[in-house]
Amino acid sequence: MISDITLGQYFPGTSVVHRLDPRFKIILTILFMVALFSARNVFVYAALVLFTVLLVVASRISLRVVLRGIRPLVFILIFTLILHVLMSTRTDGRLLIEWKWLTVYDMDFYRAGVMVLRIVLLVVGTSVLLSYTTTPISLTDAIESLLKPLSLIRVPVHEFAMMMTIALRFIPTMLEETEKIMNAQKARGADLSSGNPFKKIRALIPVLIPLIVSAFQRALDLATAMECRCYRGSKGRTKLVKLKSTPADFVALVLFAAVLAGVYLGNHFITYGIRVG
C-alpha cells in the first residue's frame, strides 16, 4: 500500500553517509550519476555495482529497505527491457530472431540489461546518498547554499528553496491524508483495488477531490501562519543551523572523483569484454 513507498523517505542514523555535509552529498550524487552514464564496458559496470553495494553497506540502511525502494520500479524496468530488445534499430551482434519488421540481436539483450542496471543503480545510489540518509530540510538548505551565486543575477534562490522545503515537508502529510481519505471511502464500500485500469482511475475520484481541496486549504493556512510570524522572504534572514564541511567530506569527494576517473580510464583502456552503448 501507500506506506510501502520508501522512495524519498529519511531513515535516521549516524553512519558515515548520514554525517556527510549535504552540499557535498549533492555533488557526490552528480558525480555518481555522471559515472553511471559514462560507463561503456561490462567490467566497469561490475565495478560500479560493487561501489554501489559498498555505499549501501556504509550507509547501514538495511538491504530490505533498499530493495523495497526498487519494487515500484519493476513495471518501468520490464517495460524498458522489452522496449530495448524489440524496438532497437541497431544491427550489431548475432541475429537471433527475424520476423517481418522485428529483428532481435544478442547485443540488444546486453544493451537492455545495461539500461535496467543503470536505472536500478541510479535509484539505489541516489536514494542511499540523498533521500534515505539526508533530512529533506538539510537537503534544501544545501540546494539553497549551492545555488546562492545565482542570487547575484536576481534568481530568487531562497524563495525557490523555501518552496521545495514546503513541498518536501508535506509529502508525508499528504500521503497520510491520502490513506485517511482512502480509508474513509473504503469504509463506505468504495472498491479501489479491483476492476480494469480505467475503472480503477474512476474509483480514485472520491479520493482525489477531497485531497486537492484539503491541499489548497492547507496551503492557505500555512501562508497565514507564515505571515503571522512575519515571514518576508530572504531579506535579512539568518540560519539556525549552519552547514559545516569536515575533512570526511573532502575524502568522499576525492573518492567519488576517483571513481569517475576510473570509469573513463576503464572505458578507454579495457578493450576486451563486451562493450555496450
Binding site: 474513509a184 471511502q185 469504509a187 464500500g189 472520491p206 479520493v207 477531490i209 477531497p210
Partner: peptide
Amino acid sequence: VRFRVGLVMQYPEYQLFDETVGKDIGFA
C-alpha cells in the same frame, strides 16, 4: 463487512467529494 459495520472516521467531513450532498450521502 464494511456495509454491515459502519465506520465514521475522525473529522469525516474531509471525505465529501461529490457534486451534491445527496449524491455524496448515496455514495455507499
